[in-house]
């Protein structure tokens, strides 16, 4: 890598997160972000794929799916110890790649992989890490990164005083990378013989199928912690029925066992895109929004005018759900909606 002298000022390494042979879809947004950043830094974008087997240029599907993207390079590293994700191996390989070349930035998703190993790498390199970046401003040495704080009620802008920058990227925060590139594929060898993989992945347990398939619902009435207690959740179910839709919930509702887990909408639940999503007593945390913000019409019902849910809503009602929901049920029956 070092002999590759060109006018570009270094590289941005983007970890391609994959599982069971498939590139995870949020990687395309991470690459999209990296290209924006590359323009600001005059740097190249290198996608990094770690795997157990040699990813021959044409056969391996992992490389195949990245090869058409508008980036400069694909770096592959292979070793039997890289068969599954582990923070020990991933941190070590990325540290090694950083030491081999002029690396300006290391990017991963704000995901169960990215947030899991990047803090480790940051400690080792003794550099700063910015989590869940959703915007970048400035040029060259004066980059400012944007992110949410206070459960999405405020935004902070930060500066990093060390290099390389380590960043995790908000899922869905950036447009996908464009097609039409011809990145060169280079295989880099990293010696992992001394590395012990201390966490052993035994299996993956998929969420159970069955029950309701919210991804097919055209009307969803969703309830959050604002309902207060299990018994109160009934009014959400009643409203769903009155509107001819299905009921769903935010994570705390499921955690507290007010409703079944297959009703959870959000980054660790279902991603839905109904014609109508009516959110009752849901604040609009980023993990919830990522599961529903592409719905056609979003109605937010919340007593807190600052709740971030209003930021994605089509219609907003600032008020007490215990007054508004019964009124909605009555009105739906009166006007006859289905």
């Amino acid at each position: 890598m070092e002999e590759e002298e060109n006018k570009m000022a270094g590289k941005i390494l983007v970890l391609i997160e994959h599982r069971e042979g498939k590139v995870l879809d949020y990687n395309w947004g991470n690459l999209g972000f990296a290209v924006t950043l590359a323009n600001k830094l005059n740097a190249e974008v290198s996608a990094v794929i770690l795997s157990a087997v040699i990813l021959a240029q044409d056969s391996a599907s992992l490389v195949q799916s990245v090869k058409s993207k508008k980036i400069n390079e694909i770096i592959t590293v292979h070793d039997p110890k890289l068969e599954k994700y582990s923070p020990d191996t991933y941190a070590y390989v990325m540290q090694n790649l950083v030491s081999q070349g002029d690396i300006q930035v290391v990017v991963a998703g704000h995901t169960s992989i990215g947030w899991d190993f990047l803090p480790k790498l940051a400690v080792r390199l003794n550099v700063g890490l910015v989590s869940e970046v959703n915007g970048v401003e400035g040029e060259g040495e004066n980059l400012i990164f944007k992110r949410q704080v206070y459960n999405g009620k405020l935004v902070e802008k930060v500066r990093v005083k060390s290099k390389p920058y380590l960043l995790t990227v908000e899922r869905g925060g950036f447009p996908d990378i464009e097609e039409g590139g011809t990145p060169q594929v280079s295989n880099v060898s990293v010696d992992l013989s001394q590395i012990e993989v201390r966490t052993k992945i035994i299996e993956y347990v998929k969420s159970e199928k069955g029950g309701v398939d919210l991804t097919k619902s055209s009307i969803i009435v969703s309830g959050g912690r604002g309902l207060g207690k299990k018994e109160n959740f009934q009014i959400v179910k009643d409203l769903a029925e009155a509107l001819g839709g299905d009921y769903a919930a935010s994570r705390p509702v499921v955690d507290n066992e007010w409703v079944e887990r297959d009703r959870q909408v959000g980054s660790s639940g279902k991603t839905v895109k109904p014609k109508l999503y009516l959110a009752c007593g849901i604040s609009g945390a980023i993990q919830h929004l990522s599961g529903m913000k592409k719905s056609d019409v979003i109605v937010a019902l919340n007593k807190d005018p600052d709740a971030p849910i209003f930021g994605v809503a089509t219609y907003g009602v600032i008020g007490d759900l215990f007054e508004v929901i019964p009124a909605l049920i009555e009105e739906a029956k009166k006007q006859g909606v289905h």
Binding site: L154, V158, Y315, G319
Partner: peptide, 27 residues
């Protein structure tokens, strides 16, 4: 190494129409 330069209120992504009135009228 990471330093906040500013804290601000978010700019809403879209334009929400807030419905005014009592519960019945809003419904």
């Amino acid at each position: 190494k990471v330093e906040r330069v500013t804290l601000l209120e978010p700019q809403p992504e879209g334009k929400v129409e807030i419905l005014q009135g009592d519960a019945k009228s809003v419904a």
